[in-house]
C-alpha cells in the first residue's frame, strides 16, 4: 500500500470494507505508540499490553470515527488515557493529579553527584540522570514535553490529546523547559552530565 496515503484516507478505506487499511495503520503507528507508552510506563510488557489495547479500542471505534481531528491525534489521546488509567490502577497510594501541582524535588540526584566529584559518570548513568529530571516534571509538564520533543506533536495536537487549551500547553512547555534548565544546568557546568 502506498505509504504516502493519508491516515484519514486509510480510515475511510477501512470503513468501506478494506481490512488491509487497518493493518497499514497499525504498521505505521505501532512503533510510535509503543515508544510513547514505554516512556510513560517504563516497562516493555506493560507497554506492549497497552499498545495492543490501544489498537483494539481503535478497531472497535473506527467504524464510527469521523475525521474531526487527525487520526494520529486520536490515537495518542487513546494511548494517553490508557497510560493514565494504568498509572492510577498501578499505584493507588500515589495521587496522580491531573492538575499542574509541582511534584516535590526531595531527593535531587544532582546533589548526590556533586558530593562525589571523582565519580565517573558513565553514558548509561548520564542518560538516567537526564531521564530522572524529565520524570520529576509535573504530570502535565511531562506529558507536554514528551509529546512535543519525542513524538513531534504540534501544540494544537497536544492540546487535543490532553484535552486542554493550546495556551495552557504552551505554558506547560515553557515551565518544563525552565525546570529542566534549572535541574540540569548545574550538572553540565560541572561536567557531570
Amino acid at each position: 500500500m502506498d505509504t504516502m496515503v493519508e491516515d484519514e484516507i486509510l480510515v475511510a478505506h477501512f470503513q468501506a470494507g478494506g481490512q488491509d487499511a487497518f493493518d497499514e495503520l497499525m504498521k505505521r503507528y505501532k512503533h510510535k505508540i509503543f515508544s510513547y507508552l514505554l516512556r510513560s510506563v517504563k516497562n516493555f510488557e506493560d507497554a506492549e499490553e497497552l499498545t495492543i489495547e490501544v489498537f483494539v479500542k481503535v478497531y472497535r471505534a473506527l467504524e464510527d470515527w469521523r475525521p474531526q481531528a487527525r487520526f494520529s491525534t486520536w490515537l495518542y489521546r487513546i494511548a494517553y488515557n490508557l497510560s493514565i488509567d494504568h498509572h492510577r490502577s498501578k499505584s493507588r497510594r500515589m495521587t496522580y493529579s491531573l492538575d499542574d501541582e509541582e511534584l516535590p524535588l526531595d531527593e535531587p540526584m544532582a546533589n548526590d553527584l556533586r558530593s562525589n566529584p571523582e565519580w565517573q559518570v558513565e553514558e548509561k548513568d548520564r542518560h538516567r540522570i537526564i531521564r530522572d529530571a524529565v520524570d520529576r516534571l509535573s504530570p502535565n509538564q511531562k506529558a507536554v514535553f514528551m509529546l512535543n520533543r519525542y513524538d513531534g506533536l504540534q501544540l494544537n495536537e497536544i492540546a487535543e490529546v490532553l484535552g486542554i487549551a493550546e495556551g495552557t500547553v504552551k505554558i506547560h512547555l515553557h515551565r518544563a523547559m525552565k525546570k529542566l534548565k534549572t535541574t540540569l544546568e548545574p550538572l553540565w557546568e560541572k561536567n557531570e552530565i
Partner: peptide, 27 residues
C-alpha cells in the same frame, strides 16, 4: 538548546524488532 540536546539524546529508545513483529496478530 543544551536542555533539548541532552533530553533528546537520553530520550532515544531502541525497541527490539521482535517485540513489535507480531503486534498485528496479537491485536
Amino acid at each position: 538548546k543544551n536542555v533539548l540536546c541532552l533530553t533528546g539524546e537520553a530520550g532515544t529508545i531502541s525497541i527490539p524488532e521482535p517485540i513489535l513483529n507480531n503486534l498485528e496478530v496479537k491485536v
